[in-house]
Structure formats: structure tokens, C-alpha cells
Design a protein around this nucleic acid. Structure first.
Length: 832
RNA sequence: GCGCCCGUAGCCCAACGGCAGAGGCACACGGCUUAGGUCCGUGACAGUGUGAGUUCGAAUCUCACCGGGCGCACCA
């Protein structure tokens, strides 16, 4: 569809043709003028905060953006129509690697690329008619924003929640920077897919583990309004387990010492026949017998060669070295050998385990490999693991377990052992989490500098708040090339500074923050985006938040969504916000795919959004995406029909030209049947939007359009007030999905812009009550008759009517009626 | 290996335990048209992946299996 074609084909039969391109051009400037979606902090209306994950500014929008913005916009626009004051902001997560890499390639500054892309993105969004409040926009790479990112870092630092430690960290050789655990998926870099290696480095961390239990508990409430998969992913990621810390006496050459292990099965302590220490834990090197030190060192070399991918392979044979020392099993008093292996992780639990080969498959595999003893202490009725090499983990009767012998209850066994250990001072019940602290420093340029100065005298010194922001030095092109250390280190003038405490020479921290830090608090900033005195205005934040709906991709299930929750809890502890969860409800959209596969350059199956918009228009593309199916489902563009969407929009548009009654006509005297259809459509559409069934909502509008067409052509006629009522309802409902068409319809109906703020028509409840209802009569569950009855018919009357029906009588065929189930006024089922 | 979600017409998808079809695409036929479809109308097409069970009644609840998708997975 384009303008030339339509005007060229105007005929006396179709004098009016809907010119999509012209309509888009017509209303855009009008909306710019009206600014119908500017959120007013002081509005007396009830507030709604509709947030969609702000994007990295990649330039033109693509199909994925188009989908999420279309879905999100349905809810934002619906809330406006229902009379809420809606905050629907948009900004850009504009720090990050793509801009930096582009700057290296093009020998420029990342900001140049970033700003150009942001301008294009905003333009695309405006054409797309997303109902964002552009007066609140910001970019996380602007000093006005990252100054507050730095301020928050300092607040965390004050509270001991930002700290530095040395440890083996994830290193992406491609991006030349460290990564948080959350950014490593299956051993590869989440961003670039390169195989992640380990590196021993001193890095900054946020102490998210302090909030592990609360992050977990909060999910119980969110489970009702968040997608299951996100809640599950976060639960898994936090990975709470219950068990015990058990102390073992370790006999080393240098003397005895205690080592604590973490176990979820303290009840199997009698079956612990050896101990394993993580090979890369400092402890292993400390306790190893001198004769075995070389073997351990050799082994470590081997271990470090193995990539995460190798390490994650579950069928990988167990390896390890005997440390040449023994430990005392605290309940049996036995001396058991101590080994080092890479199947024990240094940074989980205590980095050391008690091995119970009979009841843990990993320990059994290791015992088998090394020829270590296996002792069954729970008889589950299955074959002995010692013979089958299959560890038994189920319930059974304790054997060879001292005071536990004869017990059959696992919980009781665990309780008994913990009580004994606690009484003897050899252990205690313990809870452990899989969640690790959040590694936030990055060795790249395009991020917020960490506002810390390192002083030879005073160590880590916070940059005073009044000296924020610590702005990035001007580096460009080759200066930004990754060298394994932060590019900021090369800016010596910037690095060399004075200690805020003593005034002596000192150096700035040269790492920048993970961009996930920027996005962990942006939802607060939107509430007072131009505040120059503070990160956000607590009063405004409490007025708008928590967000009533957060729409975005499920790929952030444990990254952004966990970090943002963590920040919110800390800010609440600091007294800056009045709530502990930032997003009350969440919706994940699916992907737009093509021909069954993810769109990609290599497959050559990409769909260009710009071309689709050019060909079908903004409204039709939006409509297609919303109508395609449930929002969470993937959309295969190859199965979609934007042509059909165009046709429907024209069909709807045409209705607006057929209405002959005047604006403001009282619909009360209108055709009752059409009025009921309209009322029903509005009523159903509300419920459907509120439950995110946007595709079904669109179907309801289509139904109303069809009914109205019929009423005009072969029913009450175009002059009937019910027709105007119906078409106006179509325009308002359509404004959630197809804003241009809806506006044009509204205009043709004789109204002033904008339909987007016209308000949801009030539904006359009496019109929702049907005069008659079709009652179904079943015999043996099969439909045998339909009766038109009043909605308030009594069960007895309905039963009598059903039994009197000739068709039913025939079906009964004289058989004996054993039971009659009546569900007035809809159904009767006769059991013979 | 463990857990979760999903299988309805040629296709995309609807259906408080109660008439399997709301809507759309594609298709066929008719109308309007010099013609076309971006118009109007009509129609055909599934018995709900398979097998059991619960129930007066199952697409819907339960179990098993088949097929597809997702998450977790050496975390002691």
C-alpha cells in the first residue's frame, strides 16, 4: 500500500481510500504538539508506572523492539484510557561494548557513535507511535546520570556492600574483561560467545550474598504476578540448601588444624570415608604433605588448562591427588585420607567436602577411580553401591551409624547428628547458597569509572561526593584497544591524582562498572529524571513505584532482574525508598523469529522492520505483532499476515466514514442488539487487556467491527445512534494497538484529537444481561436440544422444560431417567 | 539425569469442568465491478498428540507414553 496507488485508484465506487502513509504524516506533528503522554507528578489521578526494559541504543529499531514496544504500549495506553496518570518513560542503557568497539574501529569516541544511535532510536520510536514520555529520557552514559551511579557505589561502599577481593575470576579473552557469574552461560561469554577462562585478579564486588535469603523470600510474593520461568530461574540461581558445617581435625606435617566442610547430608557422616579439598583452594596448598606438594602443583597445572566447558561435562572422569595427610571423622574417630580434586569447587561452601561415596554419585565415582573405600550407612533396599557403583540417595534404614541405627526418617537422622555435633562443638546446622557476590569491575573504557582513589598511605579512599562525577578522560580510537588492563590506565594524567584524605600522590581506580550497575537503578531515576541534587526524589519514587508492570525479555531473568531487586533492597535499608521490590508485575515477550528460526545474518532470514513499516504501515505491523498470539509466545513472522492486518484496519476505518449521526448523539435509543455487542466488547476487552491476552482483545474488536458492518449494511442502518456508539468504541479500543488508524477514525467521527486520551467508554451493565439464554440439553453428555430460556429461570422449570422437549423425549426413547444435572440457565444433562 | 511449559482445522490462535470455534490467514464459491481486490457475502475443513483414569459431563483435572520448547545440572 502506498499513496500513489491509492489515489490513482480512487473511483466513484470507493471515493474514500485510506492512505496509511498520509495518515502517519498527518498525526505525528499533532501528537508532538499535544504531548498526550506526559506524566504529571502532581496529577490527582491514580498513578500507574508502565516500564519496559530500556534498550541499548543500536540505532534503528528491529523487530524485537517493535514487538516489545507494541505489547507494552497496549497496557500503557489502556491505563490512560481508564483514567490513570501513566508514567511510561524511555531512556537508553548507553554504556557498553558495542559503542566502544565501534569507536576503536572508526577511530572516534564512543560517545559519537552512541549519540548518533540514540537520535536514530528516538526517531524510530516516535514514528512507531510508542506512547513514551520523552520529557523524561536520559542516557546512562551521560555524566548527569553516571554521577549518581557513582554516588550509589559510594553508598554501597560505606555500608560494606562494595569491596575488593582477590580471586580466580571469569575472564573473557574476546572482550578482554572480567565477567560476573551471571554473564557466563555454559562456560561461554554471554555477550560474545567466547570460551571463558579463569584469571587470578583483585576485583570489586557487590555483596549481593548478604541479601540471598531475602531475594529468595521475595519471590514467594512475586510468584503470583511474575512469569513462572523467571521466578524459577531466580530460585535456582540463588540455590539455597540446608545442611551442616562439620569440623574435621586435620593432621598435617605442621600440626593439627580444623577444617570445616559443608554438607547437606550430615546424617551420612558415618559413611564419610575420605575428604576432598578443592584443588585450587588455598587450603590444599597449605595442608599438603611436603612429599605430595609437587604432585599437587602438577595437578593444578592440568586443572587450570581445563576450560569451564570441559569442567561442566558431567561424564568427565574424576581426577585428583592424594594430599598425603589424614583427617579424623568426628563421629567414627577414624583416620580418613584427604585428597584434592577439581570436582570440589573452591568458592562454594567451604571449599572442602566430606566424601560419602555410598550415597553420593560424585564421591562414588571418585572413590572408584582412586580405589577408596565405600561404606553404605543407609539401607534403601537397593543393591549395595559398593558393587553397583550407583550411589543410593533415597530414604532407608540407617546402618553402621551408631546412634542412628534403625532410624528410617531422614529428617530425624539429620536432626540427630546436628544435635550431637552441636553438643560436642564439632559442627552446626548451616544454610548455604549458590549465589556468589556480584563482580562489578570491568577492564573497559565505556562505563562509569569506579570513584575510588588508591593512596599508598590510606589505601582505598572514596572520592568525596562533591567531587562527583569522576568523568571519563577523553580517549578515542586506538587508545581504547583492550590490552587486558583497563584503557583508563593509559590516561596517566587522569590516573595520577591526590589522596582526598592526605593530599599526597595517589592514583585513581582504573576499572569501570559493569553496565548492569547502570540499569539497576534507572527505574528510580525516571521518577525525577532531571534532579541535579540527588539520584532521585524519594517522594516521587514512592508516589510512582513499585512499577505496576515491567515488560521485557526473559534473557534477563537472573541478571538485570536480580540486580535491580538487590539495589532496591539496599536503597530501602538506606531509607531512600519505601518498598523492597521494584517491579510488582512482569511480562516477558517472546522472540520474533522467521521460518522457524531465530533471525540472523548468517541464516539470511532477517526481517527488516523498516521495510515492513514502509510496506504495511506502523499500525498494521503493530497489530500483527499484538494479534499473533499470547505475548509470551514466539512469533514466526513467516506465518503472519500483515496484509490481513492492513485489510482489517481499512475495514475499521471505513466504518468511521459511514456513520451519519452527529457527535454526542445519545445512544440510548439505538439498536439494542448492536448496543449489547458494543457493551460486551468493551467489557471483555478490559478483562482481556488486564490479563495480558492482547491477541484475544484484538479478536473482540474485530468481532465488533464485523457486527457493526452488518448493522450498517443490512441492519439498523448507518444513522442509528448505536452505530456511532459502536464505531467510537472501536476507535478507542483500537487506539491501544493502531494509534494512527484510531486517531483518523476519531477525527472522521467529528472529534478533536486525541483519541488516545478520549477515555474508555462506560459500559451500561444492563446491556450485559441477555434477554434470553440458550440452554443446552444433553442426554448422556451428548447435546440433544437447545432451549431459549430467560436468564433467571429456576432449576425446576428448566428441568421440566428439558424433559418436555420432543427431541429430548426421542433421545430418551422411553429409557429410565436416573439422574438429571441442572446448571440453570445454561445446561441440563440427563443420565439414563 | 532432574524440573517446568506446550501439542485444538492446511496455518496462526480462542474456548469459568458444560453446544469444540471468538478472531485472523490461506482456500472455494457467489455478489459488486470494464477489470482488479484494499469491497460485500456464503461455504468447506478439526473432535482437541496417544492410551488409561476421575466425573452426570474432560480440550480443560490425574497418571503414563509420544512429540516440541525452556530451565537447571560435579553447588556436596
Amino acid at each position: 500500500m502506498n499513496a500513489e496507488q491509492s489515489s490513482g485508484h480512487s473511483t466513484q465506487h470507493e471515493p474514500e481510500t485510506y492512505d496509511i502513509a498520509a495518515t502517519e504524516r498527518k498525526w505525528q506533528p499533532v501528537w508532538e504538539e499535544l504531548q498526550p503522554f506526559r506524566a504529571d507528578d502532581d496529577s490527582p489521578r491514580e498513578k500507574r508506572y508502565a516500564l519496559t526494559m530500556f534498550p541499548y541504543p543500536s540505532g534503528d529499531l528491529h523487530m524485537g523492539h517493535a514487538e516489545v514496544f507494541a505489547l507494552h504500549d497496549v497496557m500503557a495506553r489502556y491505563w490512560w484510557q481508564r483514567g490513570y496518570e501513566v508514567l511510561n518513560p524511555m531512556g537508553f542503557d548507553s554504556f557498553g561494548l558495542p559503542a566502544e568497539n565501534a569507536a576503536i574501529r572508526n577511530d572516534e569516541h564512543p560517545d559519537t557513535y552512541t549519540r548518533a544511535n540514540i537520535a536514530r532510536s528516538i526517531e524510530s520510536c516516535r514514528t512507531y507511535a510508542a506512547s513514551f514520555d520523552w520529557t523524561r529520557t536520559f542516557n546512562t552514559s551521560d555524566p548527569d546520570y553516571y554521577r549518581w551511579t557513582q554516588w550509589l557505589f559510594l553508598k554501597f561502599h560505606e555500608r560494606g556492600l562494595a569491596y575488593r577481593k582477590n580471586s580466580a575470576v571469569n575472564w573473557c579473552p574476546q572482550d578482554q574483561t572480567v565477567l560476573a557469574n551471571e554473564q557466563v552461560v555454559g562456560g561461554v561469554c554471554d555477550r560474545c560467545g567466547a570460551e571463558v577462562t579463569k584469571k587470578e585478579l583483585t576485583q570489586w564486588y557487590f555483596k549481593i550474598t548478604d541479601y540471598a535469603q531475602e531475594l529468595l523470600d521475595g519471590l514467594d510474593d512475586l510468584a503470583a504476578t511474575w512469569p513462572d520461568r523467571v521466578v524459577t530461574a531466580q530460585r535456582n540461581w540463588i540455590g539455597r540448601s540446608e545442611g551442616a558445617h562439620v569440623d574435621f581435625a586435620l593432621h598435617t606435617v605442621g600440626g593439627d588444624r580444623h577444617v570445616t566442610v559443608y554438607t547437606t547430608r550430615p546424617d551420612t557422616l558415618y559413611g564419610a570415608t575420605f575428604m576432598v579439598i578443592a584443588a585450587d583452594a588455598a587450603l590444599a596448598a597449605e595442608v599438603v604433605h611436603p612429599d605430595r606438594a609437587q604432585a599437587l602443583a602438577d595437578y593444578l597445572v592440568e586443572v587450570r588448562k581445563a576450560s569451564d566447558i570441559d569442567r561442566l561435562a558431567t561424564d568427565r572422569p574424576k581426577t585428583g591427588v592424594d594430599l598425603g595427610i589424614t583427617a579424623t571423622n568426628p563421629v567414627t574417630g577414624e583416620e580418613i585420607p584427604v585428597w584434592a580434586s577439581d570436582y570440589v569447587l573452591a568458592d562454594y561452601g567451604t571449599g572442602a567436602i566430606m566424601a560419602v561415596p555410598a550415597h553420593d554419585q560424585r564421591d562414588l565415582d571418585f572413590a572408584r577411580e582412586m580405589g577408596l573405600p565405600v561404606r553404605r550407612v543407609i539401607d534403601t533396599g537397593e543393591d549395595d553401591p559398593e558393587e553397583t557403583y550407583v550411589a543410593t540417595t533415597g530414604n532407608g534404614t540407617y546402618v553402621r551409624s551408631g546412634e542412628l541405627d534403625g532410624l528410617t526418617d531422614k529428617a530425624a537422622g539429620i536432626r540427630t547428628i546436628i544435635e550431637r555435633l552441636e553438643a560436642e562443638g564439632r559442627g552446626t546446622g548451616a544454610v548455604n547458597y549458590r549465589l556468589r557476590d556480584w563482580l562489578l569491575s570491568r577492564q573497559r573504557y565505556w562505563g562509569a569509572p569506579i570513584p575510588i582513589v588508591h593512596c599508598p598511605e590510606h589505601g582505598e579512599v572514596a572520592v568525596p561526593e562533591d567531587q562527583l562525577p569522576v568523568t571519563l578522560p577523553m580517549l578515542r580510537g586506538a587508545d581504547l584497544k583492550p590490552r587486558g588492563t583497563s584503557p583508563l590506565g593509559g590516561a596517566t594524567e587522569w590516573v595520577d591524582t591526590t589522596c582526598p584524605t592526605c593530599g599526597g600522590p595517589a592514583t585513581r581506580d582504573t576499572d569501570t562498572m559493569d553496565t548492569f550497575v547502570d540499569s539497576s537503578w534507572y527505574m528510580f531515576r525516571f521518577c525525577s529524571p532531571h534532579d541535579t541534587d540527588r539520584a532521585f526524589d524519594p517522594e516521587k519514587v514512592d508516589a510512582w513505584m513499585p512499577c505496576h508492570l515491567y515488560v521485557g525479555g526473559v534473557e534477563h531473568a537472573v541478571l538485570h532482574l536480580l540486580y535491580g531487586r538487590f539495589f532496591t533492597k539496599v536503597l530501602n535499608d538506606m531509607g531512600l525508598v519505601g518498598f523492597r521490590e521494584p517491579w510488582s508485575a512482569q511480562l516477558n515477550q517472546g522472540f520474533v523469529i522467521n521460518q522457524g528460526k531465530k533471525m540472523s545474518k548468517s541464516l539470511g532470514n532477517g526481517v527488516n522492520l523498516g521495510e515492513q513499516l514502509e510496506t504495511f504501515g506502523v499500525d498494521a505491523v503493530r497489530l500483527t505483532l499484538v494479534f499473533a498470539g499470547p505475548p509470551e509466545d514466539d512469533i514466526d513472522w513467516a506465518n503472519m499476515s500483515p496484509e490481513g492486518s492492513v485489510r482489517f484496519l481499512q475495514r475499521a476505518w471505513r466504518l468511521s466514514g459511514d456513520v451519519t449521526s452527529d457527535p454526542g448523539t445519545d445512544p440510548a435509543s439505538g439498536d439494542p442488539a448492536l448496543r449489547r455487542t458494543t457493551a460486551r466488547a468493551l467489557h471483555d476487552a478490559s478483562a482481556l487487556v488486564e490479563s495480558y491476552r492482547f491477541n484475544v482483545m484484538v479478536a473482540k474488536v474485530m468481532e465488533l467491527v464485523n457486527a457493526t458492518r452488518k448493522a450498517i449494511d443490512s441492519g439498523c442502518g448507518p444513522a442509528d445512534p448505536a452505530v456511532r456508539e459502536a464505531v467510537e468504541a472501536v476507535a478507542v479500543m483500537l487506539s491501544l494497538v493502531a494509534p494512527y488508524t484510531a486517531e483518523e477514525m476519531w477525527h472522521r467521527l467529528g472529534h478533536e484529537p486525541t483519541v488516545a486520551r478520549a477515555g474508555w467508554p462506560a459500559v451500561d451493565e444492563s446491556l450485559l444481561v441477555e434477554d434470553t439464554v440458550t440452554a443446552v440439553v444433553q442426554v448422556r453428555g451428548k447435546v440433544k436440544a437447545r432451549l431459549e430460556v430467560t436468564p433467571d429461570i429456576s432449576e425446576a422449570d428448566l428441568e421440566a422444560a428439558a424433559l418436555a422437549d420432543p427431541g429430548v423425549q426421542r433421545a430418551l426413547d422411553g429409557g429410565e431417567v436416573r439422574k438429571v444435572v441442572v446448571r440453570a440457565p445454561k445446561l441440563v444433562n440427563i443420565v439414563v
